[in-house]
Design a protein around this nucleic acid. Structure first.
Lengths: 347, 347
DNA sequence: CTGAAAGCGCTTACAG
DNA sequence: CTGAAAGCGCTTACAG
């Protein structure tokens, strides 16, 4: 079998021009069957597709993006995947994106603001069509870099406090309110709020909601604030030891921990020190972290609507991409959290 | 202030040539300070850096990858992020990659083999430097597509059964053995293995390990296999109802569920039906899924070394990328799982 | 409906 | 150490 003037069949991946030659058409036509199928006659199109298949051609998206000034990918930058709310949001965004035929690329930031920033830049470098950003702290510098470059961005689970970008958040104030209300309705009168004194938006807002619920009781219920070293199980243990060391009369009869992990830590240690949960102290978390540590009781908490968070954010982003920044109006969508009652507050 | 012949300062993102003009050098030099700093004199380099900073230049990685035939990114395709072993692996891979200065892009596959395949293709299209693939079933077609194109690939948590690629797996046979051994050591004599009859590698292997442990007892211990509809909590509930319906003497005194979610479902339902766990029946999972549903007891399980899985896989991949396919020898790394004893087997 | 040609923004030999 | 020029693999007007 002679191969007169075709290139020797090396192992080199097929390029678009190889497909064109194989199908006996020009590269423009191959590109058209890929990008504008309606511009190509059916027969030609079929022939080209067969060549693509035959040669195992996979288009170089770098060249493609370069040639038409931007990729069709969407980036998702998440501050940390360990917290299940972000993970759920990622999954919600993923399935919404795919349903719309978009490719979602995720980058985790290992809980490091600097890494987050570099992830944002790397997506800028890739000229993504849009970006979903799920931060834990003020990221306006990064948002500015994006908008300057006309990269649509939607904030996930963080209120940017400006109208320069869309955002989808859960009502953390309501989460706090719902939590405190639940304990008050159960007849608890001495609530302790366990959190940290870092400047984290969700913490501030949940605290505010809890205070609001307590204030409504006109002094019938007292609120104590306990500051933990961090948001993890170990700090929950420490707080439990601190509480157990007090006279029984000085102890709270309910604990709202700002994270489920803190709540779990409290419960495990309290049990070991002879405190009955929920008998002596009802305990709950407020972040519905399904990745939280294991616990001897199921934990009452407040759902954070993770999947919906991601799905709605992706929809807002797609709207902005489609309509362009001029016709698009930025929105701020607020989702309402829901109470989940479990064994740690109700026997 | 006159701007004689510079381009009007539009909102257009700065390109490399803008940086070059601003710094008064050629584009080649700018490229060199970015890619080969040693080739550029210190003063020039500093000047260029200042221009980059000043103009907010972010290099177009599409153009960059196109020009030098491949990106520096690494892709990670995970069949599903809901299972914490994959999530942990992703985090392990991420931090190892970053430590080495590599950018890791993740794509989730929503538990859909077709989506997985398209994720692999999209990373091929992006000309990534290498790929980490965490599948649940035979993916040799995808692996072949990758190796044909000289894209290094490392399998995560799946044994490809060939030596065409590196892989990192946990010893699932050992996981099964350890689980059964634990129950036998506790004095249990009638073990039930709850799993599915799908063709999933980890399931087969864990079953094999369990059988091995039981066989070693020379008939002192019996093994019953129970087939669930799927791997989730609801099926665990159903199995518990089925077991509870039997005469007490016909029930197993220990249950190994192939997933933690099945185990949790079993425990919750069994408790509601008056079966004491672990008194009447000791129950455990074997996949250390920290995202598993909440449970009234902490769950005995077998750790799957998720982070290490991802970290080791990334190291193998970097080795293959650095040394090229010729000097690189494919390896198969097997990690050993560990027993975690909790309340669901030991009171 | 199809083809030839210019151009996307970089990088890399190659000369100087 | 630096600059001018070719080329990476596509896409898109533009002519036919």
């Amino acid at each position: 079998m002679s191969r007169l003037n075709g290139p020797a069949r090396t192992n080199r991946p097929a390029k678009l021009i190889d497909v064109a030659r194989h199908a006996g058409v020009s590269t423009g036509t191959v590109s058209n069957v890929l990008n504008h199928p309606d511009k190509v006659k059916e027969g030609t199109s079929a022939r080209v597709m067969r060549s693509i298949e035959h040669l195992g051609f996979v288009r170089d998206t770098n060249a493609s993006s370069l040639a038409n000034g931007g990729s069709h990918d969407i980036g998702l930058v998440v501050i940390d995947l360990a917290n299940s709310i972000f993970l759920d949001a990622a999954r919600g965004a993923q399935s919404t994106a795919r349903a719309a035929g978009l490719n979602l690329l995720m980058a985790g930031s290992e809980n490091d603001f600097g890494v987050q920033s570099s992830n944002v830049d790397s997506f800028i470098g890739a000229r993504v069509a849009g970006l979903l950003l799920a931060p834990m702290q003020d990221s306006s510098a990064q948002i500015q870099r994006l908008t300057k470059r006309h990269v649509p961005v939607v904030l996930v689970n963080y209120d940017p406090g400006t109208d320069h970008a869309c955002s989808v958040i859960v009502d953390n104030d309501a989460a706090g309110y719902i939590a405190a209300r639940h304990l008050i309705d159960l007849g608890r009168r001495r609530i302790a709020f366990v959190s940290v004194d870092w400047d984290l938006q969700p913490v501030e807002q949940r605290r505010h909601g809890i205070r609001r619920a307590v204030a409504e009781t006109d002094g019938a219920v007292t609120l104590e604030e306990i500051v933990a070293d961090d948001l993890e199980v170990g700090s929950g243990n420490a707080i439990a030891r601190q509480v157990a060391a007090r006279d029984a009369a000085e102890r709270p009869d309910a604990v709202v921990a700002v994270t489920d992990n803190l709540a779990v830590g409290f419960i495990e240690q309290a049990a070991d020190l002879g405190i009955d949960v929920p008998g002596d102290i009802a305990v709950m978390g407020t972040d519905d972290n399904t990745s939280a540590a294991r616990c001897r009781l199921t934990l009452t908490t407040v759902t954070m609507q993770g999947r919906q968070l991601g799905a709605v954010a992706m929809e807002l982003l797609m709207d902005e991409i489609r309509h362009g920044r001029d016709e698009h109006r930025h929105q701020r969508v607020v989702l309402t959290p829901q109470l989940v009652v479990q064994q740690s507050t109700v026997r």
